[in-house]
Design a protein around this nucleic acid. Structure first.
Length: 578
RNA sequence: GCGUCCGUAGCUCAGCUGGAUAGAGCGUUGCCCUCCGGAGGCAAAGGUCAGAGGUUCGAAUCCUCUCGGACGCGCCA
């Protein structure tokens, strides 16, 4: 769909040029739909700059515009607003052009780093935000014409691995993994299930906090694992494997997928040579026994601690791994841009990493999408009654059951297999939409009741609008005709729906610029709502006037295309029946 | 102490380079199925945009301060 906004912006840019004004044309959908469809405030800002009456400027621009803009009515209003009203024919002509993405000027190689679950830990509601937001950003960037890879960046390295090894050794000391003289092939199946791992981990973790000698054992095991002790390596492989299988199932439910299932472990080998290279370039200094890169700048208002590359005991940290990850992404994928979707509390850490990356000479653009914490109804970080985080699977199950109840209520029957799948899609739509509609950077309240709500501004509301359209289109075999050249006069509901749909590209652009899917949610809801009003205001299939009936069916098709696109970008699947 | 984010309707949240009359959902109250799916539509009530100054023709939006909340600040991830 060619953007109407872009078209008007072009016209205005030319008019500004003709009048000799040096000012970017700024056009947006009108705040006063009673007065106009689109508006611009350029005359106001120009008036300020040139100290002339904005109304005068607006009138000059209107004059210049009227030469080219024959399908637009232009008014000057108030202190100098330029108001644009499109003719009905103009709306139909634009809508008939169909959907086509407005691509970014240059295609880039982009990596979206999101998800980031840890091996051996269950996936809980805390993983929702990163996964869902990241998935949507990935789709948005792709839509804009970039080459995009999603990388899960697994937490598969660190002392928690040593802890698990120690804990398992306590339980099953006879396993061959612990026998250093063992030379045979290790078993192919894992000695532990994921459930067992998830049970062991919190126990050993809290015991290590209290028992220093146990913690020491875990550190030793970690050290040996990292230095390649074969039994530990084999065991670790099992841990990773059972965890990844579970994650894949969880992510599949959420309609989230990754091109790269790389973990922190992948980059460890490259770290020593990376540090050596940095040392050679003179970017590194020693501080209190540790090796650091200074990242502070003279313009900093705040304290900026140096990034620690190597601890005084010789170990590496998270930041080191992150730098090595950037190295690889730049060298193997030529990454132009890396988008991190992680907990907002890591802001400072990533700022250090980005500065260090810049200092070592990477030209990559970095974006930090730090999301806020998920709070309970008490506005404290969300916990279940037993004190833990709610399992993702459990949450999805609850929502699926709720949706199934609704289907039975609404339709009276339940096609077991198909409706099971539909119920899950509806439940997940509710979940994802409830999350994605919030500005990513802010904290938000996790309210189970709100997620269970399928009415109002929710995912199911969007699906419902689509299902109504599907049902309509299924009942007719009429060809949809093209309204490009028609001069039919539109009802208010029809007109509002058209204008809304025509805003799609500008909203997507805004969401992309801000890397904020919540703009898409807001808009998708708007479209569905405006459609629902149109739907209840007019008969469609039963309309006797052929022209009107065709027009309305055509609008249904356009609404369908728009909603499907938005859901696709949000990563929400739709259903054909509810 | 320094820094980051935030404070908008009873609740949860939008509000796009400063613009016209600050929006939505939930909740509350009332209405709408002889008509295509009522998970819907219509309407009402509900606001000192935390507070105080400032910049501006114009501020929820920009600046300063105060109050209130969340978070971060060298060898954890």
């Amino acid at each position: 769909m060619i953007s109407l906004q872009l078209h008007i912006t072009d016209l205005l840019t030319k008019a500004l040029d003709v009048c000799g004004y040096d000012e970017p044309a700024f056009v947006k959908a009108s705040d006063r739909p009673d007065l106009s469809d689109y508006q611009s405030t350029v005359a106001l800002s120009l008036g300020k700059k040139l100290k002339t009456n904005p109304v005068e400027i607006a009138n000059k621009l209107k004059e210049a515009l009227s030469v080219s803009a024959d399908s637009l009515e232009i008014f000057v209003a108030g202190p100098g607003f330029l108001n644009f009203k499109c003719t009905d024919a103009c709306l139909m002509a634009y809508l008939s052009k169909g959907i086509a993405p407005i691509k970014a000027a240059a295609s880039q190689n982009v990596i979206v780093d999101y998800g980031g679950p840890n091996v051996a830990k269950p996936m809980h509601v805390g993983h929702l935000r990163s996964s869902i937001i990241g998935e949507s950003l990935k789709r948005l960037c792709r839509y804009k014409g970039h080459v995009v890879l999603g990388d899960i960046h697994l937490g598969d390295w660190g002392t928690q691995m040593g802890m698990l090894i120690v804990a398992l050794q306590e339980k099953h000391p006879d396993l061959p993994y612990f026998d250093n003289s063992f030379e045979g092939a290790y078993p192919e199946t894992s000695p532990v299930t994921l459930d067992q791992l998830q049970e062991i981990y919190p126990q050993i973790s809290s015991r290590c906090k209290e028992d220093e000698s146990l913690a020491e054992k875990a550190r030793t095991a970690t050290y040996e694992l990292q230095n390649g002790r074969p039994g530990y390596r084999a065991l670790w492989q099992h841990f990773v494997c059972v965890s990844v299988n579970d994650m894949k199932r969880n992510f599949e439910h959420l309609n989230v997928s990754f091109e790269q299932w790389f973990g922190e472990s992948r980059y460890q080998e490259a770290i020593p040579s990376m540090i050596a290279a940095y040392e050679k370039k003179g970017l590194v200094r020693e501080s209190d026994g540790a090796l650091v890169i200074d990242v502070a700048s003279s313009t900093d208002k705040k304290e900026m601690p140096p990034l620690i590359l190597k601890k005084k005991d010789g170990g590496f940290l998270y930041a080191t791994t992150d730098l090595a990850t950037i190295e690889e992404r730049v060298h193997t994928f030529n990454a132009d841009r890396i988008i991190y979707v992680v907990d907002g509390r890591q802001r400072l850490h990533f700022e250090q990493v980005f500065r260090a990356a810049e200092k070592v000479g990477h030209k990559t653009t970095f974006d930090f999408i730090g999301f806020g914490t998920m709070n309970g109804p008490d506005n404290k970080p969300f916990k279940t009654r037993s004190g833990g985080a709610m399992r993702l699977e459990e949450l999805i199950q609850m929502l699926t059951e709720e949706a199934a109840v609704r289907i039975k209520e609404a339709r009276g029957d339940f096609e077991t297999k198909e409706d099971e799948a539909r119920a899950q899609a509806i439940g997940v739509a509710a979940l994802k939409f409830a999350d994605l509609q919030h500005n990513p950077s802010q904290n938000y309240q996790f309210d189970l009741k709100k997620f269970m709500n399928f009415e109002g501004k929710t995912g199911p509301y969007l699906l419902y609008a689509l299902v109504r359209i599907f049902a309509l289109l299924e009942k007719t075999s009429e060809e949809t005709i093209d309204f490009k050249d028609h001069t039919l006069s539109l009802s208010s509901a029809e007109r509002i729906l058209m204008l809304k749909i025509l805003q799609t590209e500008e909203v997507i652009e805004r969401a992309y610029q801000a890397l904020s899917p919540h703009f898409l949610c807001d808009f998708a809801f708007d479209v569905a709502q405006v459609f629902s009003r149109f739907y209840s205001a007019h008969p469609i299939l039963s309309e006797k006037d052929d022209m009107k009936r065709h027009l309305r069916l055509w609008l249904c098709t356009k609404t369908k295309e728009t909603l499907l696109l938005l859901l696709e970008l949000l990563g929400i699947s739709c259903v054909n029946k509810m």
